[in-house]
C-alpha cells in the first residue's frame, strides 16, 4: 500500500434531497461561481462526476448525486455497491427550509445504512444548508435541534458525524468545506510542522496556507498575542475575500476566473503587515507580521527559500491511514 495512484484518489459523495443546494456549493467552491450565478444551475440528472486536483497528490473524486426520488431509489438498489463502496467521505446536505424534515431524515437513514454496509470507515459530514433564510437570532437553536435529531438517525456514525450550518451567501460555506478538506489531506500534520518552523523563523504572527484554486485553508499557525484575535472566523473570511477578489479581477479584465491569480498581494499599515504569495504549485501562503519593513522583507526572502521543502510535501506523501483502512 504505498503511494500508488489509486490511493491518492478520494471518493466523496455529495447527497441530499433535490434542491437542497449540493450543486450550488460545489460550483462555488470548486468552479469559480459566485453565489448569484447558481440560479443558472438545473437539477442534476443521476450522478455528475468531477475530479478535482487538490494539493498536488490529492485527487478528490466528487460524486454530485442528483437528489430526485427516482435517482435516490436507484442508488440504493441497482447501483448500491457501485455508489457506496470505497467512499472516503459522505457529505449530506439538508435544506433548512424543507417542509418534510422527517421524511428527509428517513431518506438520510437509508443512505447511511447503505454506506455503513459498503464503506464502514467513511466519514460523514452533514451540512444544514440555506441558513441565510432563517432569522439570525433563531439560527443557532434551530441548527442544534436539527443536528441532534439527525444524529439520532445516524446509526453506526452517530458518534463521529459532524454538523455544519451553511449558506452560499456567507463564509459559513468555506468553514464547512475547510474542515472536510482538512480531513482528506494526507500528511496535514507534516505540513503543519513545517509551517510552525517557518513561522518561528520569520517571526510571523500568523501563517495561513491556502489551496490556490479553491482558496480553502489547508492549515494555519498562530503565534503569541494573535491567538486573541477577536475575529475567530478570519480564516474562512480571508478565503472568501480572496475568492471575491479573484472573481472581480476575472470579471473586469476578461481573464478566465481560473487564471486570474495574483502573484503577490501586500498590505502595509501602522498596525500590521500582511502578504499573500505563491508557495507551491497548489498553495498560497498568507502571512501576518509585525509592522516593520525589515521583518517584512526578511519574511519574504525566507519564504522564497523554503519553497522547495513545501513542494516536496505537496507532491509526495503518504495517505492518512485512518481513511483508507479499517
Amino acid at each position: 500500500m504505498n503511494t500508488s495512484k489509486r490511493q491518492k484518489q478520494r471518493k466523496v459523495l455529495l447527497m441530499g434531497k433535490s434542491g437542497a443546494g449540493k450543486s450550488s456549493m460545489r460550483s462555488i467552491v470548486f468552479s469559480n461561481y459566485v453565489a448569484k450565478d447558481v440560479r443558472r444551475l438545473g437539477a442534476t440528472i443521476d450522478v455528475e462526476h468531477s475530479n478535482i486536483k487538490f494539493m498536488g497528490n490529492l485527487m478528490l473524486n466528487l460524486w454530485d448525486c442528483g437528489g430526485q426520488d427516482g435517482f435516490v431509489e436507484n442508488y440504493l438498489t441497482h447501483q448500491r455497491a457501485h455508489v457506496f463502496s470505497s467512499v472516503a467521505v459522505l457529505i449530506f446536505v439538508f435544506d433548512i427550509e424543507s417542509r418534510e424534515f422527517a421524511a428527509d431524515v428517513i431518506s438520510y437513514s437509508a443512505i447511511i445504512r447503505a454506506l455503513s454496509e459498503n464503506s464502514p470507515t467513511a466519514a460523514v459530514f452533514v451540512l444544514i444548508h440555506k441558513m441565510d433564510l432563517v432569522q439570525s437570532r433563531l439560527r443557532q437553536q434551530l441548527f442544534e435541534e436539527r443536528a441532534e435529531y439527525i444524529r439520532q438517525a445516524s446509526e453506526g456514525f452517530r458518534d463521529t458525524v459532524e454538523f455544519f450550518p451553511t449558506s452560499i451567501w456567507d463564509q459559513s460555506l468555506y468553514k464547512a468545506w475547510t474542515q472536510i478538506i482538512y480531513y482528506l489531506i494526507p500528511n496535514a500534520r507534516g505540513i503543519e510542522g513545517l509551517l510552525r518552523e517557518l513561522a518561528e523563523v520569520v517571526d510571523a504572527r500568523e501563517l495561513i496556507l491556502y489551496e490556490r484554486t479553491t482558496c480553502l485553508m489547508v492549515t494555519h499557525v498562530t503565534r503569541g498575542a494573535e491567538g486573541q484575535n477577536p475575529f475567530t472566523d478570519r480564516f474562512e473570511r480571508i478565503s472568501s475575500i480572496l475568492k471575491t477578489h479573484k472573481q472581480s479581477m476575472a470579471k473586469h479584465t476578461g481573464i478566465p476566473a481560473g487564471s486570474a491569480n495574483f502573484a503577490e498581494m501586500q498590505i502595509k499599515t501602522g498596525r500590521f503587515m500582511f502578504f499573500i504569495t505563491r508557495l507551491t504549485e497548489n498553495t498560497n501562503l498568507a502571512a501576518s507580521i509585525p509592522p516593520s519593513e525589515q521583518v517584512f522583507n526578511a519574511a519574504r526572502v525566507n519564504i522564497a527559500l523554503v519553497r522547495p521543502k513545501f513542494a516536496e510535501l505537496d507532491i509526495a506523501s503518504k495517505p492518512r491511514p485512518a481513511v483508507q483502512q479499517a
Binding site: S259, I267, K268, T269, R278, P291, S292
Partner: peptide, 20 residues
C-alpha cells in the same frame, strides 16, 4: 511602534505578465 507605514499601502501584482 516600529517603522510601520502610518498611511496604509497595498500592492497586488498579477501572475501573468502583461496583466495590470
Amino acid at each position: 511602534q516600529e517603522t510601520g507605514n502610518n498611511d496604509a499601502e497595498s500592492l497586488i501584482t498579477m501572475e501573468r505578465k502583461g496583466n495590470n
